[in-house]
Design a protein around this nucleic acid. Sequence first.
DNA 1: GTGAAAGCGCTAACAC
DNA 2: GTGTTAGCGCTTTCAC
Lengths: 345, 345
Amino acid sequence: MSSRPTIFDVAKVAGVSIKTVSRVVNHEPNVRPSTKERVDNAIAVLNYRPDQSARNLASQRSHLIGLVYDDPAAYEMPSGGYILDLQQGALEACRSAHSELLIHPCDFRKKNVGIELKELIEETRPAGIIVAAPLSNMPKIVRAIESTGTPCVRLSPGNDSSKKLTVSTNDREASAEMTRYLAGLGHKRIAFITGDPDHKAVAKRFLGYQDGLKESGLEFSETLVAAGDNSFGSGEACAETLLKVKKTPTAIFAANDDMAAGALRVANRLGIDVPGQLSLAGFDDIALARQVEPALTTIRQPLDRMAETAAAMLIKGNSKDKGDDGPVVIPATIKIRESTGPAPR
Amino acid sequence: MSSRPTIFDVAKVAGVSIKTVSRVVNHEPNVRPSTKERVDNAIAVLNYRPDQSARNLASQRSHLIGLVYDDPAAYEMPSGGYILDLQQGALEACRSAHSELLIHPCDFRKKNVGIELKELIEETRPAGIIVAAPLSNMPKIVRAIESTGTPCVRLSPGNDSSKKLTVSTNDREASAEMTRYLAGLGHKRIAFITGDPDHKAVAKRFLGYQDGLKESGLEFSETLVAAGDNSFGSGEACAETLLKVKKTPTAIFAANDDMAAGALRVANRLGIDVPGQLSLAGFDDIALARQVEPALTTIRQPLDRMAETAAAMLIKGNSKDKGDDGPVVIPATIKIRESTGPAPR
DNA sequence: GTGAAAGCGCTAACAC
DNA sequence: GTGTTAGCGCTTTCAC
């Protein structure tokens, strides 16, 4: 059995030079259609497949896209759905561009996380890196990546940087909308569970909540706010606190679904009817939101589309025509399900 | 700014030949300690990092490990936790071996899935492939991978192949144990929700259930079996069926956690007290099992350790000393939580 | 439009 | 123990 065909074999069969084969393979211009056809035929006949390593070495770049996100193993399991959605979207863009996805969960709490990232990048030389929140708003992480010169698009960096190469969603506006929706249902005491303080984009949801309150003519009150950390467990703890005060809220809006689900669990345990006595809303629309009883009203954050857009930016940017990609915003949409209803009288 | 240091730069600084540098970098024998030290110093001084592409090209193999699993996007979202655990474990092994993980969800329902896999493999030339269940028991998939000559370890292939390069857990024995545990609690009518028929390892759980019944002196009855497909939704449907018969079961054992959670949701909706009136058990121990109310009694399948073992086998196997790895079995352990209790009288 | 030659940075024989 | 010499299979200049 002969070994794999190389570009030389294709060239020989097609009766052209290897450079022409290369042109065809890379969809470069300046190849006569008839020549291209001959080459394509030869490729098909030989079942030729360009070797990525050789290609990468010669061109000094790879067809790899790195996806960097907070390591779920490093602490209490966050929403795994978050990560899968991200991967999903990035893979989608990679697939159509013959690129591969390298996943790299990393623990930002580790001191040498920057070095680790640099090593990864310098060894594999990815064409670009996608950094998910909350890593995307951490200077330590972003600087480490940028210092390698590798293009890097940040997902939901939170800070209002007008910097390019970011993809976000309208966290604040969507949260305001959810709050107005709750107020429209007659709720006067709408509580909020804040998220991980390291996560800037999630912090904007709190701002949106306040906007929504104001727009609905409702007073903001510290006693209706509990500080969570994005985890299911913190949602449970916050709900217990919020439901303990004298005048309990009639609605709780959590900065993410995991915490909302935690709150729901507490409500169920306490025998509080949802949504009869208490309305509950989350943010993200992870799978869990649909699996709890009652299903959670939430805001669908288009994580997959965000990651897909980011990957596409990286892939495109690398193929010469430097896109003038400003910050991209992909809007989130409110999803009303069973956990919210009219305020009890 | 000078460009990246190469192996030549290191050799020059250390006053040795490039081959010696290569030896040091690859931890090959036959290097005098003092020489090694000089080289290590030079590497540190220059901040040298070997270029993977060049290395791969020259050695005709990469340091990439491919992880192939059923595409969650292709159909009703299965347990995402399953995938994350797999990735987690594989990443663990990769990390310590300076390998990278390439993820490749794929839809086995697509006709050309084999070609797609071959393309992926031939282009990226991974050092090995890990195939997760249920793909690992599909000849179409396994053959496509093996035809490329790439080492491939299968996770939970189900069929009793004495073939090497497989990592499984004791699905059948663990399921028997769970059934005996339920019987020990006094349950006489223990129902079972079967899983995806394409998934051989999950099928063994049904066998284990029957074993457990027999060992406990309980009669097997068709009316106590409902056919699910591993999805949350199918768990709901099966529970509705099972709880509709004249003599309802006092315990339901589902072949996975998603289905058990679905069943729990139905019980909650129907106002059936769990575990007071009905005990519920699952299999896998995904995050969801801990997030529902009451938390699910289940069987912890060590997916992460299985994937880690698989990746380690691939990495080791590639570094010459062809391990004589027989089929590896990593035992699952029963996790008793709140959803099971004594049979009602 | 097409081709020839020169590497990309490393590993693999084999020599010393 | 260590160095020399060829490539690995491509892309890139630059000439035609």
